[in-house]
Design a protein around this nucleic acid. Structure first.
Lengths: 137, 137
DNA sequence: CCATTCTTTGCAACAATATTGCAAATTAGG
DNA sequence: CCTAATTTGCAATATTGTTGCAAAGAATGG
């Protein structure tokens, strides 16, 4: 697939089978995925360690972003644009459906600014909304 | 300690050594704690399994709430009030300090409402702000 | 297209974290 | 106190995450 290749080059990463495969999983799936889901989507073709390292570099280089969870299974989603090395601009809301259990990036729902108490400085904000998604309602 | 006992009775839970100890850890510490931190604070006196189960019932009964993380170490914090079985009303912002690594409940910073796309229904909202806390700045 | 250099991968070993069943201990309530 | 119901600890097992190192693969310059 063309897109994955473009993304890798754009971020100056060498092109390998594992990276292409993982990126394709993301471009094929709209939702945010956990490590184990990615492992399944790549049919266990790659070593578990390779996936850990691949995901780690993708996060560091700004190809994907992490979504916090309460179930010890961090999820990852493709960054749309503007995400730079070390600094993510994915300030959109993430939605977790209680029914189908999907995690969806609501790209057009911007996280509102909040006023913090004196002395607190913000570097990054995450907002996770749980409920029922449009397909499950 | 009195407070822990009161909380247990209020939620109709039987009073045991483990539950008292865990609750005391929470009332003694303002911050949100991870499983392993709680394990340390109780000096490893209780079996790891007991802690898992204790935390689980506390969440289910609304004594504590979970705070999502991106590092696979969910944190727990005491609910202030109004938290009912199965439904939490802890709609305040959580702050994670990049320096001291503490997770702080900003009880007075209310999470703003957001407008979701058509078809999405909200049951719970989490907002995590990362940055530098007032003590580390 | 080849050779060299640097990066990435897989394996192995290990560490940490999470889950389940069951018997023994503890708690609640009369 | 006695009984029934709940909670705990242990053991076994499963899942998840980490590190070092040698081999395989990718990029670069000629």
């Amino acid at each position: 697939m063309q897109e994955a290749l473009t993304i890798l080059k754009k971020h100056k990463l060498s092109v390998t089978e594992a990276r292409m495969a993982v990126l394709n999983v993301f471009t094929d799936n709209e939702e945010a995925l956990s490590h184990s889901e990615i492992e399944n989507h790549t049919s266990g073709f790659f070593d578990r360690v390779t996936l850990y390292r691949t995901l780690q570099t993708f996060v560091e280089k700004g190809l994907i972003h992490q979504i916090p969870t309460t179930d010890n299974s961090v999820r990852y989603a493709l960054c749309k644009e503007h995400c730079e090395e070390g600094h993510h601009h994915d300030e959109h809301v993430h939605f977790v459906c209680n029914d189908c259990n999907r995690t969806i990036c609501l790209d057009h729902v911007i996280i509102p600014k909040v006023r913090l108490p004196k002395g607190f400085q913000t570097s990054q904000v995450d907002m996770i909304v749980k409920g029922t998604c449009d397909e499950c309602k």
